[in-house]
Design a protein around this nucleic acid. Structure first.
Lengths: 346, 346
DNA sequence: AAAGGCATTCAAAGCGATTTCAAATTTTGA
DNA sequence: TCAAAATTTGAAATCGCTTTGAATGCCTTT
């Protein structure tokens, strides 16, 4: 109610006995203003805590000073997303750009949300994530002419700015390593079907198998969201197969926790009876090095990706062409205790 | 660059052969407009995808249409926060209110961030979280006259709108239950010192002990952030004490994972050699029921709290007095396999 | 001494909405 | 039938900023 009336440019100008024009210019670093005046203005502004009204500034400049992020299902704001977000945020904060986070219930609503963002001009750009192989949202954003950077990759007609990690190569190397250790029945707990990253991972997995003349057993490939519970169930079922898998490729650390539990419940030992390599997005609160046994991982910091994507967004907004913004990050393979030689007997 | 020129009120008005005034009124449901015209306007607006420019609307109405959330450390955007946020978001989305998330490096920056939000009028209200017993940020927000709802409680001179869970009672009941089971050396892995919720939990813990004529052993009380790694180290150290603790109260599910690992590494069994009751904020991807053994918990959905706080914010903005907005939520005690009778011998 | 140039400053016109106040039209009532 | 009231519309002011174009004063230059 009794909101304090924030100081306006006009007030500041009157206080200084100057015109709004001059004060505005002084604060925004325009050259045509006397150095002495500029200092005087800056000092007063600082002292009185003046900051331009954001809405007015946006209206006048036409820039929203914000980037949007639409999350599907509200659950999508899980550990991956929050880690990614804080990466984005740490850079955006330094640029005084706001992050506008909205959540929607489903695909249709998501498309509607982008249309709304475009029409109401609330954001200058958008970060698009978890793309499918041919992503409708990306097409819509192109059509709406709202700049965006994609976290991941997709195949639509036009060039798109993106940053992705090399999932194919990561899984090919992880799988090859397990094959080197003598494993022949290797389970893949992958992300949901249709997502580009999941497809890429499966390609890498199959490539490694094929290179040894092996075929993937469909019973050993699961697609699902990355929660410990689903992973537990899938791993449990797979461990009941005969011959059972001797190794698991887990799509995330949450998945790894579930698999781990299934292994233990089956009375088996991780690292000897069964091996596991998990993908690690590097969560500060869940460290592969501190697990017991320590977890072998394919590792890539999703937070760093967020920070970099924020930088790329700024480049796009500065006029760089989307066709020139592509980054494919390599993924480390870090071997620890959870991956060992295949057991002699099953 | 070649941003598509979004349709303006003026364009829409011209298209309809009406004045901006009438169109604006028609869209905003003012009574003094002919029903036929209103329908015609609504139809055209819908067809042409018109939405008011957010900045202009905000400037004209003086309402920002957004609530702010400042996160300290960017790490603060961990699993708790993201779960809370998606609770907030799900309600805010239904009200067409944006969430403005910013991250800061430390306490000083956080205070500065609030001053900035106030001066630039980017938000109508703020959600304050993780308060200390006497929270400086709350005082600042009062001073800045920026409405807010606190997630947790604090003690400053003036009345503050808040929603909190009953941490004291939760820990008192959990501790009492362990005492009933015969445990006498019960470790408390609490949140960082100074935070209200951590103090409240310790009060509950001590109250239960005192009721049995026992004293808390300082060596069995740890204060830290809720990560599996720190919890692992603390639990490990405590398990080396003689006599060692026979039960743990874990502050979060992440903490529980670390304690669990320490127990296993010490060659002990959870549920028989050592008991544990963990606080569960209800993460969809980490379920106490699906752990092995299943985890006894004090449970309260942090997501639901977020949703409710969003509602409370809207009430505050609608003019409800902060003094009338207080909610203390009970916490469930859910007993599962991880808490059992104290072992006979140590 | 007049003119041109430079450094500063300012008045006023946007930006795209809402809202006040007045005008035009229709309806009502006597 | 005509004034008064009710209904419906519109012109213009306003929100707080940026930015254009003009104005001011002071040096130089010729």
């Amino acid at each position: 109610m009794g909101r304090i009336a924030a100081m306006r440019l006009k007030d500041l100008a009157e206080h200084l006995g100057l015109s709004q024009t001059t004060v505005s210019r002084a604060l925004n670093g325009y050259p045509e203003v006397n150095e002495a005046t500029r200092r005087r203005v800056a000092e007063a502004a600082n002292l009185l805590g003046y900051r331009p009204n954001a809405s007015a500034l946006r209206l006048a400049t036409g820039r929203a000073g914000a980037v949007g992020l639409v999350l599907r299902g509200a659950d999508e704001l899980g550990p991956h997303m929050s880690e990614f977000l804080s990466g984005v945020g740490s850079y955006m904060a330094s640029q005084e750009i706001d992050m506008l986070v909205s959540t929607v219930a489903n695909h249709q609503e998501e498309l509607a949300a982008y249309r709304r963002l475009a029409a109401s001009q609330k954001v200058d750009a958008v970060i698009l994530h978890s793309p499918t192989v041919s992503d409708e949202r990306a097409e819509l954003l192109m059509e709406l002419k709202i700049p965006f950077v994609l976290h991941g990759r997709t195949n639509i007609g036009q060039p798109v700015a993106w940053l992705d990690i090399d999932n194919t190569s990561a899984l090919e190397r992880a799988t090859s390593h397990l094959l080197d250790l003598g494993h022949r029945r290797i389970a893949l707990l992958n992300g949901v079907r249709g997502r580009t990253f999941a497809e890429h991972r499966e390609i890498g997995y199959r490539a490694a198998l094929t290179a040894r003349g092996l075929n993937a057993d469909p019973a050993l490939v699961g697609n699902s969201a990355f929660t410990d519970e689903i992973a537990f169930r899938m791993a449990q079922a797979m461990l009941e197969l005969r011959p059972r898998p001797t190794a698991f490729l887990a799509g995330s650390m949450m998945t790894a926790l579930g698999v781990f539990r299934a292994i233990r419940q089956a009375g088996l030992h991780l690292g000897s009876d069964v091996s596991m390599i998990a993908h690690d997005d590097v969560f500060p609160y869940l460290n592969a090095d501190n697990m017991y046994p320590t977890m072998s991982t394919t590792r890539s910091s999703i937070r760093q990706a967020g920070t970099r994507i924020a930088e790329l967004i700024m480049q796009i907004l500065a006029g760089k062409s989307a066709a020139e913004v592509h980054e494919l990050w390599p993924v480390e393979l870090v071997l620890r205790e959870s991956s060992g030689p295949a057991p002699r007997t099953l």
